[in-house]
């Protein structure tokens, strides 16, 4: 086990380095620079700005500097918001994003598991159909349409929640619900088909023949093997949700970090976008590892203890 963990950690470090290098190359090869505007300053002024941020150095030098600055956790100021450090900007967004992501993920997985079990148990009957329809709706409407409608319904027609904002606990409800819908639908669908499949396996038949009820068999015997596909998708889903959903952040005006991925790239804010990518990658590595451990527990045959 220790060896496995050590191995994985090493592999993760290599992945992180590879992602950093790749992202650095990709963003630096994108045309245009951070200080371009419709009203372009004279060339000399632009050169002065670029010199201030060492953008006039050879690319390999900048690569090493950037890499070192991240190793020492001192990435310097953002190019678009030079009043703030990249580290400050990212950490300012983390609480909101993590809170939103954790709640939505929790809610999504719980809802999804409940619905998946009900659907598998009532397979082919109307509760199953209902769950299927819900699951399809949850993943078939764009998030911004869902959010827009939710705001219209629950902030204006029935004024229960505020239409946006983040400081009020009640304001958290709508964005979390909207964000939880997709993972709930996904988990429900995967779990349902997993449960149905497992229900036909020999061990399930044995359990039923030994007097376990239908529900009991599903929950106590089939849930574990049926959760394998769910666990394998959970890592990436969790990373994506924890680093924020850009759409939800924008519509509900939540100060998370999701926007940095796109705005950092669009504004060519090199240190900020590299920071955001690194954060995502590290988080993903950790969560995937957790997901794999979970999978190993769920299905010892796929084993991690090699």
């Amino acid at each position: 086990m220790t060896r496995f963990l050590l191995h994985r950690t090493l592999a993760s470090l290599v992945t992180i380095w590879a992602v950093f290098t790749l992202s650095f190359l990709v963003i630096r090869s994108a045309p245009g620079g951070p200080f371009d505007a419709e009203r372009d300053p004279p060339a000399a002024v632009k050169a002065a700005i670029e010199a201030r941020y060492q953008l006039n150095q050879p690319l390999w030098q900048q690569y090493l500097d950037q890499g070192w600055s991240w190793i020492t956790l001192d990435p310097g100021p953002s190019l678009r918001q030079p009043d703030h450090d990249v580290a400050t900007i990212l950490s300012a967004g983390i609480p909101a994003s993590f809170l939103l992501g954790t709640l939505a993920l929790l809610l999504g997985v719980l809802m999804g598991m409940g619905l998946g079990i009900i659907a598998a148990w009532q397979q082919g009957r109307w509760p199953d159909r209902l769950v299927t329809i819900f699951a399809s709706m949850g993943i078939s409407l764009p998030l911004y349409v869902i959010a827009g409608l939710a705001i219209l319904l629950f902030a204006f027609h029935l004024p229960i929640f505020p239409p946006a904002g983040w400081t009020d606990p009640i304001a958290v409800v709508l964005p979390v619900l909207c964000l939880a819908l997709a993972p709930a639908a996904q988990v429900a669908r995967l779990l349902r088909s997993g449960l149905i499949e497992a229900g036909q396996e020999d061990f399930a038949r044995t359990a039923r023949s030994k007097g376990r009820g239908q529900v009991g068999t599903l929950i106590f015997h089939c849930l574990r093997p049926a959760s394998i596909p769910v666990a394998s998708t959970l890592g990436p889903t969790a990373a994506a949700m924890l680093t924020g959903s850009l759409v939800i952040e924008q519509i509900f005006a939540i100060p998370g970090i999701g926007m940095h991925f796109i705005q950092g790239a669009m504004n060519r804010d090199y240190p900020l976008v590299l920071g955001a990518v690194l954060l995502y990658t590290i988080l993903l590595q950790v969560l995937t590892l957790l997901g794999d451990l979970l999978m190993g527990w769920l299905d010892p045959r796929a084993g991690v203890n090699r």
């Binding site: 592999a11 290599v14 992945t15 992180i16 590879a18 992602v19 790749l22 992202s23 990709v26 963003i27 090869s29 994108a30 045309p31 245009g32 990436p236 680093t243 850009l246 991925f261 796109i262 950092g264 790239a265 669009m266 976008v273 955001a276 990518v277 995502y280 990658t281 993903l284 590595q285 995937t288």
Partner: peptide, 24 residues
């Protein structure tokens, strides 16, 4: 699988914008 990990470790939107720019 390490290669798949690598591809999946880069946030999607970031890739999209930059692929679109690079293919200009």
């Amino acid at each position: 699988m390490r290669f798949v990990d690598l591809i999946d470790s880069i946030p999607l939107v970031f890739l999209v914008i930059l692929i679109a720019s690079a293919l200009r």
